[in-house]
Structure formats: C-alpha cells, structure tokens
Amino acid sequence: MRFFTFFLMFLISHATANAQNEEISPNRYRFKYRSTVYKGSKLQITAQLRSLKTSSKFTGIPEEIQEELNTLFIATKKQAIPKYYKKHAILFLDAINDYEDFANVYENALHEAVRKVKKDIHVVDFKFERQFTKAKVALDRALKEDFSDLEKFDKLKKELQDSQTKLLCHRWMKKKFEKYKSIDIVKKPDQLMMTFKKSEAISVYKMYNENRIEKIPSYLENQIIDFYYKKSLPEINPEILDLQYITKI
C-alpha cells in the first residue's frame, strides 16, 4: 500500500514538473488575449492565427485591409523570442478584432440601407410610371399638332427617353431588391451585392474610424441606389415596358 501511494505521488509530481517545464520551455509560447489562451509551440500558435485570418468571415475583405493583416501576420511569424512574438501577435489580434467589430457595424448598416431602399422602391414605383406616361402624352400631343418648335420637340423627346430609362432601371432594381429577404443578403451576398460591398468597404471603414457610424446607413443607401442604377443600364430593353398602373395612354 505504501509503495502504491509512493508511486502515485511520484507520477503526480512528475506530471506537474513536466507541465511546469513545458510552461517555461523556450520552445513553448503562452499568452492570453481577451478570453482566449494561446499556448503551444510557435508553429501551433501561428497556425491558430492563420486560421483566424483565413476564416470565412473575412471573405471579400478589402485588399488594403487584407494587406495590413498580412503585414502584421508576417511580422508576428518572424519573431523568434516569445515576448516579442506575443507583442506582435497581440497587434495582429487587435487588427483582426477591430475588423470584426467594423464588419458587424458595416453589415448591419448595409442591411438597414437595403431595407430602406426596398421600402422606397415600392413607394416611388407609381411616381416613375406616371412621369413616363405624362412625358409620352406630351410628346404624342406635340406630334399631332403642327409643331415647328424643334427645340421644344427635342426637349419633350429627351424627357420621354429619360423617364423611360428611369422607369426601366427602377423596375430592374425592384426585381433585385424584392429577392432580398433577410440579413443573409449582406452576410452571404450574391455577386452583385458582393461587388458593391467590396467597393464601399474602404470608404465605410474610414467613416467607422472617424466615429461617423450614424451616417453610414444613409451613405450606403445613396451609394447602393447609384450602383444598382448604373448596373441596370446595360440590362434594360427599351422595347419592353409593362405599365402596371396606367393601362391607357
């Protein structure tokens, strides 16, 4: 019995000594960041840091920010002394977490902008159709008259073309936004939304760092309307226009 007790104490003390040696070993790294403890070999911790950088939440990250993270990651990886490795790793983790915080603000603001545009699209739909029909009636009336004022005729023709383009683009956008049902459209965006999201990320990131967070949704609302409008121009067909409110013009 005494031998068993002695043997058990020996195993415990040996395990404790190994653990202590592991903690103080120059080949072992250990530090805490927020609620996460990073410990292990330099290779193991570097792999953990790399997995953070390459996780799905950083898909579509702007190139400028990606370069910053890569620079910090490479600087960390190069450190051979644990205390310097820890210092650089924390700088890298700060940048990662700062971008995550920004990404949450950005996605929520973008979702708010999408919801606002989606709501307004239905409100102005009748307005754009009425503008088109009024322009067409005005031009048709001018064509029936003995119209010698070519400048006025050209103006009416341009007003009709502009109102038609505006209505067609609006209807194209309306179809797109009607498919956007939840915040998934900004978290798992389609190609069009992904392009927009990437194109505005740096500008929004600047606003975020300047503490102008409350202005981000309205900024994105204006930008997304302009972006989708321009994308719609090569897609519309002036020969195909269905009037939804006014059946006779």
Rank of each mutant, 00 (worst) to 15 (best):
K42V: 00
K42F: 03
Q44W: 02
Q44N: 10
A47R: 14
A47Y: 12
Q48G: 05
L49M: 05
L49V: 03
L52W: 13
S55C: 12
S55F: 14
S55T: 09
S56W: 10
S56I: 12
K57N: 07
F58C: 08
F58A: 05
T59P: 04
G60H: 13
I61K: 14
I61N: 12
I61C: 14
P62E: 10
E64V: 13
I65R: 06
Q66V: 09
E67L: 10
E68I: 15
L69E: 03
L69Y: 10
T71A: 09
T71M: 07
L72K: 13
L72D: 03
I74A: 02
T76I: 01
K77F: 10
K78V: 06
Q79V: 01
A80I: 00
A80G: 02
I81M: 00
P82I: 01
P82E: 02
K83F: 01
Y84A: 00
Y84R: 00
Y85C: 01
Y85T: 00
K86Y: 02
K86W: 01
A89P: 03
I90L: 01
L91A: 06
L91N: 12
L93R: 02
L93D: 05
D94N: 07
D94K: 04
N97T: 14
Y99C: 02
E100L: 15
E100Q: 10
E100W: 08
D101R: 13
D101W: 03
F102M: 09
A103W: 03
A103V: 10
N104A: 15
N104C: 13
Y106H: 13
E107F: 15
E107Y: 15
E107M: 15
N108S: 15
A109R: 09
L110F: 11
H111T: 12
H111V: 10
H111M: 15
A113E: 11
A113W: 12
V114H: 05
R115F: 06
R115K: 15
K116H: 02
V117F: 04
K119F: 15
K119Q: 14
K119M: 11
D120C: 05
D120W: 02
H122Q: 08
V123P: 07
V124S: 05
D125A: 14
D125E: 02
F126S: 09
F126C: 02
F126L: 04
K127E: 13
K127S: 11
F128I: 08
E129S: 06
E129Q: 12
Q131C: 03
F132D: 06
T133K: 04
K136E: 08
K136G: 13
V137F: 02
V137D: 07
V137M: 12
L139H: 07
R141S: 11
R141W: 04
R141E: 15
A142R: 01
L143Q: 09
L143P: 10
L143D: 14
K144Y: 11
E145Q: 08
D146S: 09
